[in-house]
Write a protein that binds this DNA or RNA. Structure first.
Lengths: 300, 300
DNA sequence: AAAAGCGGTGCGCAAATTGCACCGGCACTC
DNA sequence: GAGTGCCGGTGCAATTTGCGCACCGCTTTT
């Protein structure tokens, strides 16, 4: 696409931090690239880079331009998918930034179902913590985010919220396995494994124990991988914590899950959202609609 | 701006309806222009023009592209005004599509006040009926619309609504001039002048008389210019109808205005709005905010 | 003091773009 | 129904544009 070439080069320079480095990345001479940048600044009417002794850096005007470039690129992608849409086959690309818990069961199921109806649509799915997910939205790197308890909500437009009570996962022969519902203090009496404070599960547990004098979150093992934690329970007899959407509906391998009592621990909010005010590409918008349906069904 | 050149040419072709005509308008040979168009379609991956024996016309894909071009151009203009903004002086351009009634007093006052604070900001102000105003918003030809009772509201995002009871304008010595408030049937008994059905005033009057058997709108003179109608009353003793925002606060020249009783005629809605979901340029957004303040003050 | 990186510039050459002349096709006219 | 006027499209030569190379002046690093 001819008219995006300058933008491409500008992005390259931003990424590389210097014109010379960028020129190597992009198969062009530094002099030619330099002239492109200068010519662009000239036509644009404002400088967009600060010239430093060791390279270049965006100035405030450049930051604004960068945002425009990203937004423009995403608009153009949407245009293309709309055009492809009216020529028959539904094509397009959907990019999702989500919490880990969605990776093993929920999203594979949803995406495969969607792709069953629209085989032309491709996906990129990446695990991101709540801060990174929102940043990806603002940078147009992801269309859709699905995360627990996002922190800074300024650019995050919530499309659907769904309450997720924390479950504990343990062996089927664990003493707590018989309870319908587990009290927090009972759970914490047993040796357990927990994620770091980066994750909503841990934050909710800490919040809950803050008022509790008799118990404390005291994990024998901390990990950033829910997958690891869940599977670890098969080897050593520890309990772990997770949102139910991350669990298989019929857990095999001798593991069972039970909800923590909601009067002990506030349920987490799983929020589905997009960049505030953005018009999503057709494919992403449709997929989002189906996610809303599925998430609503889960709540009942 | 280099990267908008193709778009410029495409718009030219759309406007002219044929490549050859467009080539004359834009100082380029038909062959070169033709090749640009073909190359663009090639890179874009889809044809955007139907080739007809007498020229070319946009196909559906081209319609989508055209919308993208317009939106893109307006985004770029906003970017520039943002950049200009952070370099000190507030610059930019605000375009307003509005009903006639706003032209004589309200908008001049508002705009001059705004330009007093921001002399770098330029304006374009055009009278448009309610249908045309909304179309201009969707085509990014206007940033802001200020109209009475717009019809199709799909793309019109209402920012402020303000009720405007219809007033009648007459000579100071008119028999009705003494009333605080005029009943509709009293007013219609006198010879009057009224706008055509294109205008909200007339529509509201017709709606009101539909249930009234004793009176009818029966103008001796119909006009599309409120300015004409108001001034005509100085020569022949006719009454005319208008929204109060179109009237000077202290009417000179022997004319007075009195409101029609609201129980007879529903007040008109003066709606301030923009294209749904669009992010306005800084200058337009700020001007809009000031309009909201002024309109709110009028309501009290 | 030397070396290494950086952005920027002059110049010759290659590639992309343009203008010109012209083709075939369709519609309207006499 | 032949003639005429536009239309989009194409081959080719002229021209403009953009590129790579060599090199400059500068600052930081070693």
């Amino acid at each position: 696409m001819r008219h995006l070439k300058d933008f491409k080069f500008i992005e390259g320079v931003i990424r590389a931090g210097s014109i010379r480095k960028a020129s190597e990345d992009m198969n062009i001479t530094a002099s030619a690239l330099n002239r492109r940048i200068n010519r662009f600044e000239d036509e644009f009417g404002y400088e967009i880079f600060e010239r430093l002794p060791r390279g270049v850096r965006l100035n405030p005007a450049g930051e604004l331009l960068l945002h425009h470039i990203r937004s423009n690129r995403s608009d153009f992608a949407r245009l293309k998918s709309q055009v492809a849409d009216l020529s028959g086959v539904r094509r397009g690309h959907v990019s999702v930034a989500c919490s880990q818990a969605l990776l093993p069961y929920f999203l594979p199921r949803e995406i495969s179902r969607y792709r069953g109806e629209h085989p032309g649509v491709t996906f990129s799915v990446n695990a991101r913590d709540r801060v990174a997910a929102e940043r990806e939205l603002t940078e147009f790197a992801s269309d859709i985010a699905l995360v627990f308890e996002p922190l800074t909500m300024v650019d995050f437009e919530v499309v659907h919220a769904s309450a997720q009570p924390i479950h504990i996962i343990m062996r089927a022969d664990h003493p707590l396995a018989d309870c319908e519902e587990v009290r927090l203090r009972d759970a914490l009496r047993f040796p357990h494994i927990a994620p770091s404070e980066k994750f909503a599960v841990r934050v909710l547990l800490e919040n809950a124990t803050r008022t509790l004098t008799s118990a404390d979150v005291n994990p024998l093992i901390e990990s950033e991988s829910f997958d690891f934690m869940r599977h670890y329970g098969q080897w050593e007899d520890l309990i772990s914590f997770q949102f139910p959407i991350g669990l298989d509906l019929e857990p095999g391998a001798g593991l069972v899950s039970r909800p923590l009592a909601e009067r002990d621990v506030a349920p987490g909010s799983l929020l589905l959202g997009q960049l505030r005010g953005r018009t999503l590409p057709v494919a992403s918008a449709r997929f989002m609609r189906e996610l809303v349906v599925s998430l609503s069904a889960l709540d009942n």
